[in-house]
Protein backbone atom coordinates (compact mmCIF):
# COMPACT_ATOMS: atom_id res chain seq x y z
CA UNK A 1 0.00 0.00 0.00
CA UNK A 2 3.03 2.29 0.45
CA UNK A 3 5.74 1.97 -2.13
CA UNK A 4 8.84 4.12 -2.26
CA UNK A 5 11.09 3.77 -5.29
CA UNK A 6 14.63 4.85 -6.02
CA UNK A 7 14.94 7.80 -3.63
CA UNK A 8 18.04 9.91 -4.17
CA UNK A 9 19.01 12.90 -2.09
CA UNK A 10 22.19 14.94 -1.85
CA UNK A 11 23.08 17.89 0.33
CA UNK A 12 25.59 19.80 -1.74
CA UNK A 13 28.16 17.24 -2.86
CA UNK A 14 27.17 14.81 -0.11
CA UNK A 15 25.03 12.03 -1.48
CA UNK A 16 22.91 10.96 1.49
CA UNK A 17 20.37 8.63 -0.16
CA UNK A 18 21.61 6.56 -3.07
CA UNK A 19 18.48 4.97 -4.46
CA UNK A 20 16.36 3.62 -1.62
CA UNK A 21 13.35 1.34 -2.22
CA UNK A 22 10.82 0.55 0.45
CA UNK A 23 7.53 -1.32 0.47
CA UNK A 24 5.17 -1.30 3.43
CA UNK A 25 1.98 -3.32 3.55
CA UNK A 26 -1.12 -2.17 5.32
CA UNK A 27 -0.94 -2.79 9.04
CA UNK A 28 2.76 -3.55 9.02
CA UNK A 29 5.39 -2.09 11.28
CA UNK A 30 8.67 -1.55 9.48
CA UNK A 31 11.68 -0.69 11.61
CA UNK A 32 14.70 1.02 10.07
CA UNK A 33 18.06 0.55 11.77
CA UNK A 34 21.39 1.99 10.87
CA UNK A 35 24.37 3.92 12.14
CA UNK A 36 24.27 7.66 12.63
CA UNK A 37 24.43 9.56 9.37
CA UNK A 38 23.20 6.67 7.26
CA UNK A 39 20.26 8.72 5.97
CA UNK A 40 17.34 7.33 8.01
CA UNK A 41 15.94 10.70 9.00
CA UNK A 42 16.47 12.07 5.52
CA UNK A 43 14.50 9.17 4.05
CA UNK A 44 11.51 9.79 6.33
CA UNK A 45 11.66 13.52 5.66
CA UNK A 46 11.67 12.93 1.91
CA UNK A 47 8.58 10.75 2.18
CA UNK A 48 6.73 13.54 3.97
CA UNK A 49 8.21 16.31 1.76
CA UNK A 50 9.92 17.99 4.68
CA UNK A 51 12.88 17.54 2.36
CA UNK A 52 12.73 17.50 -1.44
CA UNK A 53 14.32 14.38 -2.88
CA UNK A 54 16.42 14.73 -6.01
CA UNK A 55 14.70 11.73 -7.50
CA UNK A 56 12.19 9.07 -6.52
CA UNK A 57 8.52 8.16 -6.48
CA UNK A 58 6.00 7.27 -3.83
CA UNK A 59 2.71 5.42 -4.10
CA UNK A 60 0.20 5.76 -1.29
CA UNK A 61 -2.65 3.43 -2.22
CA UNK A 62 -4.05 5.04 -5.35
CA UNK A 63 -1.99 8.23 -4.98
CA UNK A 64 1.13 8.32 -7.12
CA UNK A 65 3.63 11.15 -6.71
CA UNK A 66 7.09 12.12 -7.83
CA UNK A 67 9.17 12.88 -4.74
CA UNK A 68 11.18 15.43 -6.65
CA UNK A 69 8.64 17.37 -8.66
CA UNK A 70 5.33 16.93 -6.81
CA UNK A 71 3.03 19.94 -6.94
CA UNK A 72 1.85 21.76 -3.83
CA UNK A 73 -1.46 19.96 -4.11
CA UNK A 74 0.20 16.55 -4.29
CA UNK A 75 2.40 17.41 -1.32
CA UNK A 76 -0.68 18.28 0.70
CA UNK A 77 -2.38 15.07 -0.43
CA UNK A 78 0.60 12.99 0.72
CA UNK A 79 0.68 14.79 4.05
CA UNK A 80 -2.99 14.01 4.53
CA UNK A 81 -2.22 10.33 4.10
CA UNK A 82 0.73 10.36 6.47
CA UNK A 83 1.76 11.68 9.86
CA UNK A 84 5.14 12.34 11.44
CA UNK A 85 6.36 11.80 14.98
CA UNK A 86 9.49 13.83 15.60
CA UNK A 87 12.55 13.01 17.65
CA UNK A 88 12.16 16.18 19.70
CA UNK A 89 8.33 16.07 19.69
CA UNK A 90 7.82 19.46 18.00
CA UNK A 91 4.53 20.03 19.75
CA UNK A 92 3.03 23.43 18.99
CA UNK A 93 4.28 25.39 21.99
CA UNK A 94 1.44 27.90 21.88
CA UNK A 95 -1.27 25.24 22.00
CA UNK A 96 -2.55 22.91 24.68
CA UNK A 97 -2.31 19.15 24.32
CA UNK A 98 -5.81 18.84 22.93
CA UNK A 99 -5.33 21.82 20.61
CA UNK A 100 -2.14 20.21 19.35
CA UNK A 101 -4.05 17.09 18.42
CA UNK A 102 -7.07 18.93 16.99
CA UNK A 103 -5.08 21.39 14.86
CA UNK A 104 -4.45 19.06 11.94
CA UNK A 105 -8.05 17.85 12.02
CA UNK A 106 -9.74 21.25 12.13
CA UNK A 107 -7.37 23.26 9.97
CA UNK A 108 -5.65 20.65 7.85
CA UNK A 109 -8.61 18.35 7.25
CA UNK A 110 -11.61 20.61 7.82
CA UNK A 111 -13.20 18.31 10.40
CA UNK A 112 -15.96 20.15 12.31
CA UNK A 113 -14.65 21.47 15.60
CA UNK A 114 -16.82 19.37 17.90
CA UNK A 115 -16.02 16.14 16.11
CA UNK A 116 -12.33 17.07 16.00
CA UNK A 117 -12.25 17.58 19.74
CA UNK A 118 -13.99 14.27 20.34
CA UNK A 119 -11.43 12.47 18.18
CA UNK A 120 -8.64 14.36 19.95
CA UNK A 121 -9.91 13.39 23.41
CA UNK A 122 -10.09 9.76 22.33
CA UNK A 123 -6.55 9.93 20.98
CA UNK A 124 -5.21 11.47 24.18
CA UNK A 125 -7.09 8.89 26.24
CA UNK A 126 -5.49 6.17 24.18
CA UNK A 127 -1.98 7.41 25.03
CA UNK A 128 -2.89 7.70 28.69
CA UNK A 129 -3.20 11.48 28.93
CA UNK A 130 -6.87 11.88 29.76
CA UNK A 131 -5.94 14.25 32.58
CA UNK A 132 -3.69 16.49 30.49
CA UNK A 133 -6.02 17.84 27.79
CA UNK A 134 -5.44 21.45 28.73
CA UNK A 135 -1.74 21.33 29.57
CA UNK A 136 0.71 23.26 27.46
CA UNK A 137 3.80 21.41 26.20
CA UNK A 138 5.96 23.35 28.65
CA UNK A 139 3.97 21.77 31.48
CA UNK A 140 4.53 18.20 30.29
CA UNK A 141 7.43 15.79 30.75
CA UNK A 142 9.31 14.60 27.67
CA UNK A 143 7.50 11.29 27.73
CA UNK A 144 4.13 13.01 28.00
CA UNK A 145 5.02 15.39 25.20
CA UNK A 146 5.97 12.54 22.93
CA UNK A 147 2.73 10.75 23.75
CA UNK A 148 0.86 13.89 22.70
CA UNK A 149 2.97 13.80 19.54
CA UNK A 150 1.82 10.25 18.92
CA UNK A 151 -1.81 11.17 19.67
CA UNK A 152 -1.51 14.03 17.20
CA UNK A 153 -0.43 11.56 14.53
CA UNK A 154 -2.96 8.84 15.45
CA UNK A 155 -5.91 11.26 15.50
CA UNK A 156 -5.35 12.03 11.83
CA UNK A 157 -6.00 8.37 11.06
CA UNK A 158 -3.32 8.40 8.36
CA UNK A 159 -2.38 5.52 6.05
CA UNK A 160 1.06 5.50 7.64
CA UNK A 161 2.80 7.09 10.62
CA UNK A 162 6.49 7.93 10.28
CA UNK A 163 8.45 7.82 13.55
CA UNK A 164 11.92 9.35 13.66
CA UNK A 165 13.70 8.08 16.77
CA UNK A 166 10.71 8.86 18.96
CA UNK A 167 12.44 7.87 22.20
CA UNK A 168 16.01 8.99 21.75
CA UNK A 169 15.51 12.47 23.23
CA UNK A 170 13.93 11.00 26.36
CA UNK A 171 15.39 10.30 29.76
CA UNK A 172 15.85 6.53 30.04
CA UNK A 173 13.09 6.15 32.62
CA UNK A 174 10.57 7.74 30.22
CA UNK A 175 11.37 5.56 27.22
CA UNK A 176 9.17 2.71 28.40
CA UNK A 177 5.89 4.64 28.51
CA UNK A 178 6.35 5.84 24.93
CA UNK A 179 7.32 2.40 23.61
CA UNK A 180 4.24 0.94 25.32
CA UNK A 181 2.00 3.41 23.51
CA UNK A 182 3.69 2.60 20.22
CA UNK A 183 3.17 -1.11 20.79
CA UNK A 184 -0.50 -0.47 21.53
CA UNK A 185 -1.15 1.35 18.32
CA UNK A 186 0.87 -1.20 16.37
CA UNK A 187 -1.36 -3.94 17.77
CA UNK A 188 -4.39 -2.01 16.57
CA UNK A 189 -3.14 -2.37 13.03
CA UNK A 190 -1.60 1.05 12.45
CA UNK A 191 0.88 1.08 9.58
CA UNK A 192 4.16 2.42 10.89
CA UNK A 193 7.68 3.14 9.68
CA UNK A 194 9.89 3.50 12.72
CA UNK A 195 13.48 4.66 12.85
CA UNK A 196 14.79 3.61 16.23
CA UNK A 197 17.72 2.31 18.20
CA UNK A 198 15.39 0.34 20.47
CA UNK A 199 16.28 -3.18 19.43
CA UNK A 200 13.75 -4.66 21.84
CA UNK A 201 10.94 -2.81 20.11
CA UNK A 202 12.20 -3.96 16.71
CA UNK A 203 12.31 -7.58 17.81
CA UNK A 204 8.89 -7.52 19.46
CA UNK A 205 6.83 -5.45 17.07
CA UNK A 206 8.43 -5.24 13.64
CA UNK A 207 7.05 -7.18 10.72
CA UNK A 208 10.09 -6.18 8.75
CA UNK A 209 13.46 -4.79 9.79
CA UNK A 210 15.59 -2.77 7.41
CA UNK A 211 19.27 -2.07 7.92
CA UNK A 212 20.57 1.07 6.22
CA UNK A 213 24.13 2.23 5.86
CA UNK A 214 25.74 4.93 3.75
CA UNK A 215 22.51 5.87 2.01
CA UNK A 216 21.66 2.34 0.90
CA UNK A 217 19.50 -0.43 2.23
CA UNK A 218 22.01 -3.14 3.03
CA UNK A 219 19.68 -5.84 4.19
CA UNK A 220 16.04 -6.36 5.05
CA UNK A 221 14.02 -9.19 6.49
CA UNK A 222 12.03 -10.42 9.45
CA UNK A 223 13.39 -9.58 12.90
CA UNK A 224 14.62 -13.17 13.08
CA UNK A 225 16.47 -12.89 9.76
CA UNK A 226 18.13 -9.61 10.73
CA UNK A 227 18.91 -10.23 14.39
CA UNK A 228 19.61 -13.96 14.39
CA UNK A 229 20.80 -14.82 10.89
CA UNK A 230 22.08 -11.60 9.30
CA UNK A 231 23.68 -12.24 5.93
CA UNK A 232 25.69 -9.06 5.49
CA UNK A 233 28.91 -8.41 7.32
CA UNK A 234 28.00 -4.73 7.75
CA UNK A 235 24.75 -5.71 9.49
CA UNK A 236 26.61 -8.05 11.83
CA UNK A 237 29.16 -5.39 12.66
CA UNK A 238 26.42 -2.88 13.45
CA UNK A 239 24.52 -5.32 15.64
CA UNK A 240 27.68 -6.28 17.53
CA UNK A 241 28.15 -2.63 18.33
CA UNK A 242 24.62 -1.88 19.47
CA UNK A 243 23.92 -5.23 21.13
CA UNK A 244 27.32 -6.18 22.50
CA UNK A 245 26.12 -8.79 24.97
CA UNK A 246 24.23 -10.87 22.47
CA UNK A 247 26.87 -11.01 19.77
CA UNK A 248 29.94 -11.58 21.93
CA UNK A 249 30.28 -15.09 20.64
CA UNK A 250 31.22 -13.83 17.20
CA UNK A 251 34.23 -11.87 18.37
Amino acid sequence: MLEIRDVHKSFGKNEILKGVDLTVDKGDVVVILGPSGSGKTTLLRCINFLERADKGTATFGDLNVDLHSASKKEVLAVRKKSAFVFQNYNLFNNKTAIENVAEGLIIGRKVPKEEAYKISRDALDKVGLSNKYDSYPSQLSGGQQQRVGIARAVALNPDVILFDEPTSALDPELVGEVLEVMKDIAREGTTMIVVTHEMGFAKDVAKKVIFMDGGNIIEEGTPHEIFVTPKEERTRRFLRRVLPGEYDFEI
Partner: peptide, 24 residues
Protein backbone atom coordinates in the same frame (compact mmCIF):
# COMPACT_ATOMS: atom_id res chain seq x y z
CA UNK B 1 10.47 22.11 13.91
CA UNK B 2 7.34 24.13 14.67
CA UNK B 3 6.84 24.88 11.00
CA UNK B 4 7.65 21.31 10.01
CA UNK B 5 5.18 19.89 12.52
CA UNK B 6 2.52 22.20 11.11
CA UNK B 7 3.29 21.01 7.60
CA UNK B 8 3.21 17.40 8.73
CA UNK B 9 -0.37 17.70 10.04
CA UNK B 10 -1.48 19.20 6.74
CA UNK B 11 -1.31 22.96 7.26
CA UNK B 12 -0.40 25.22 4.36
CA UNK B 13 2.47 27.67 4.77
CA UNK B 14 0.06 30.57 5.34
CA UNK B 15 -1.91 28.59 7.94
CA UNK B 16 1.27 27.44 9.65
CA UNK B 17 2.53 31.00 9.97
CA UNK B 18 -0.77 32.44 11.06
CA UNK B 19 -1.60 29.81 13.67
CA UNK B 20 1.76 28.52 14.90
CA UNK B 21 4.77 30.63 13.97
CA UNK B 22 3.46 34.19 14.28
CA UNK B 23 1.78 33.77 17.70
CA UNK B 24 5.04 32.40 19.10
Amino acid sequence: GQLEAAYSVGLSTAQAYRRIVIPQ
